[in-house]
């Protein structure tokens, strides 16, 4: 289980996270929703150990998070890959040194799950569609079978139809592989449709943590209500007639 326990973190002189606590069990999905500057990326950097919190602790099963070798799926899929390498080389990187036949078998299985033709991995990032590169990013995150995967706005570079398709594939792979998923997103509709719980981050603080059903029926704070209203106004969720 991931435990973020009363952490404080700074970005330069500014306090970016204030007393943030949350937890995520194996196999579950936690969506962290909030606007730009709310502290979402700082939270991811803190969990990955790229930024040391000034106070508090972050653990995975009572050990430092690095012990579980978490994976990250980034927002801009093309910039997440070396542009001159074939995608296959990047995909194999996390499992270098492992038995090649085992790796090949796993890549083939994950490709089937992510609806990626194997031959596509011989191409470079610019030679495939952005939706396909994002699925290769997910494949690379899954290859070493980490128990925790962080998704930083994984759908924001994709068009509306591809977003829904990719979200379904992530959920299917999670069902199969059993990883815990922490998804940072500004799209409340995505969070409501796929997360087990939703944490709203505002000005570096947790505004609320609730399950999607409770969030819909009783958003709680005025900010959470504004998020829900915005999701309706932008067509991300629809109010039943």
């Amino acid at each position: 289980m991931l435990r973020v326990d009363h952490i404080w973190a700074k970005r330069g002189a500014a306090v970016a996270l204030r007393n943030v606590s949350l937890s995520l069990s194996a196999g579950k999905t936690l969506a962290v929703v909030g606007e730009s500057g709310a502290g979402k990326s700082t939270l991811i950097a803190s969990i990955l150990g790229l930024l040391r919190p000034s106070a508090g602790a972050i653990t995975w099963d009572h050990q430092p998070v690095s012990s579980c070798r978490p994976a990250l799926v980034m927002q801009e899929p093309r910039s997440a890959f070396n542009p001159v390498w074939p995608l296959m080389r990047a995909v194999r990187e996390p499992v270098l040194g492992q038995e090649q036949s085992v790796t090949n078998e796993r890549i083939a299985r994950l490709c089937r799950g992510l609806e990626l033709p194997m031959e596509l991995l011989e191409r470079r990032p610019r030679e495939v569609s952005v939706g396909q590169v994002q699925r290769v990013g997910i494949l690379r995150a899954l290859i070493a079978a980490p128990p925790l995967i962080l998704f930083d706005e994984p759908l924001s570079a994709l068009d509306a139809v591809t977003q829904k398709h990719t979200a379904r594939l992530i959920a299917d792979m999670q069902q199969e592989e059993g990883f815990a998923a922490l998804i940072v997103t500004h799209d409340l509709g995505y969070a409501l449709a796929f997360a087990d719980s939703i944490a709203v981050l505002k000005d570096g603080q947790i505004e609320s943590i609730s399950d999607p059903g409770s969030f819909v029926t009783n958003p709680g704070s005025s900010y959470c209500q504004a998020l829900r209203d915005a999701a309706v106004a932008l067509g991300s969720i629809e109010v039943a007639a």
Binding site: A160, V161, D187, L192, T217, G235, I237, E238, V239, A240
Partner: peptide, 11 residues
């Protein structure tokens, strides 16, 4: 497009 126009319907 119509089939994927939103994430879900809420009450």
């Amino acid at each position: 497009l119509a089939a994927h126009r939103n994430w879900m319907e809420v009450p």
